[in-house]
Computed example of a mutant assay.
Amino acid sequence: MSHYFSEKQDVKSAKKVINYKIKDEKFEFLTDNGVFSKTKVDFGTDAMLRVFLDENKKLGNIQILDIGCGYGVVSAVLKRFFEKVKILSTDVNERALELTKENIKKNNGKDDFEVRKSFVFENISENFDIILSNPPIRAGKQVIFQIYEESFSHLNKDGKFYCVIQTKHGAKSTQKELHKLFGNCTTLAIESGYRIFKCVNKK
């Protein structure tokens, strides 16, 4: 049986459209079987986006990585709010990547984005100013911690890493690991058992 972090999906396709609203902006996302949170935008991603938008009122021509992009919620939302940012959306799930392409274009009407297949940072060589992650819990702790470690090494100086994780799924061990890597880890919010962390690469 394939999981949402598998390359190929063996479940039959059954596309559907879901609606999403954030900060008075309305979005429509195409989802499908075999992708994470196919029936609605998951609480963790929504919480992370709201906190991110509260903290970042304006962003110019910077490089953002949406790692483990799923069907492209984070990428599409950030592209709507910050037109000048350059976003790279990556995932290992080929079905999710196709949906991401459709959803960014559907919600923003532009082609100035890149969607790339990559397991963690396997096909990512460049550095970024901001990296956002809602890590794939089912992929296991080793994969999640690999995302944290490689995010640190792929951030520009003073670059920021944002992530969301449930307390019951290891938020405290995540916080400890992030602090070890970055030398800092701020808890921006705790909502319904989810924690949103921010780290800054000061090295």
Score class of each variant (00 low, 15 high):
F81K: 08
T174S: 12
S89H: 09
V73M: 06
G44C: 10
Y148R: 10
I131N: 07
N184V: 02
K26S: 15
K12A: 12
E102A: 14
L65W: 08
I62P: 01
I18V: 13
P135A: 15
H3C: 02
I22F: 11
I104H: 04
D54T: 04
L65E: 04
N156R: 12
G34I: 09
R138G: 08
E55W: 00
T31C: 12
L132P: 06
V115A: 02
I67P: 11
F197D: 02
E94M: 08
K176L: 07
K198H: 03
H3M: 15
V92Y: 07
Y162F: 09
I196W: 05
S89L: 09
S2E: 09
E55R: 07
K84H: 01
F128P: 00
S125K: 15
K203Y: 12
F145D: 06
D112F: 10
G72F: 03
F113Q: 03
S192L: 09
Q166A: 15
E122V: 15
L53K: 00
K21V: 12
A189K: 09
T174F: 09
I18A: 13
D111F: 07
K106S: 15
Q9E: 11
D158S: 08
E98H: 00
K101C: 05
L178I: 14
I22A: 08
D66P: 03
K40L: 13
E25K: 12
Y162P: 01
I190S: 13
E94L: 15
D158A: 05
L53S: 00
S2A: 14
I144P: 00
S118G: 14
D158L: 11
K15I: 10
T31G: 13
I137V: 14
K16V: 09
K58Y: 00
N56A: 00
N127V: 10
G60S: 04
I104M: 06
C69L: 05
M48Q: 03
F128L: 04
R195G: 01
C199E: 07
F119D: 15
E191G: 08
C185I: 06
G70W: 11
L181I: 15
K79I: 07
R80Q: 04
N123H: 12
R50C: 04
K202A: 09
G140K: 07
V74Q: 02
H3D: 13
T90N: 06
H179L: 15
F197I: 04
V17F: 13
S37D: 08
L132M: 04
I196E: 06
L188H: 03
T100W: 01
K168M: 01
L132E: 02
Q142F: 01
F119W: 14
V200D: 04
G70D: 13
K180A: 11
Q142H: 03
R95F: 10
G70N: 13
Q63L: 06
S75A: 11
G159T: 02
E98A: 12
I165W: 11
I104Q: 08
V73G: 08
V41S: 14
S151W: 12
I64L: 06
T45E: 04
K57M: 00
V164I: 07
F182I: 13
L132Y: 02
I87Q: 00
K40G: 14
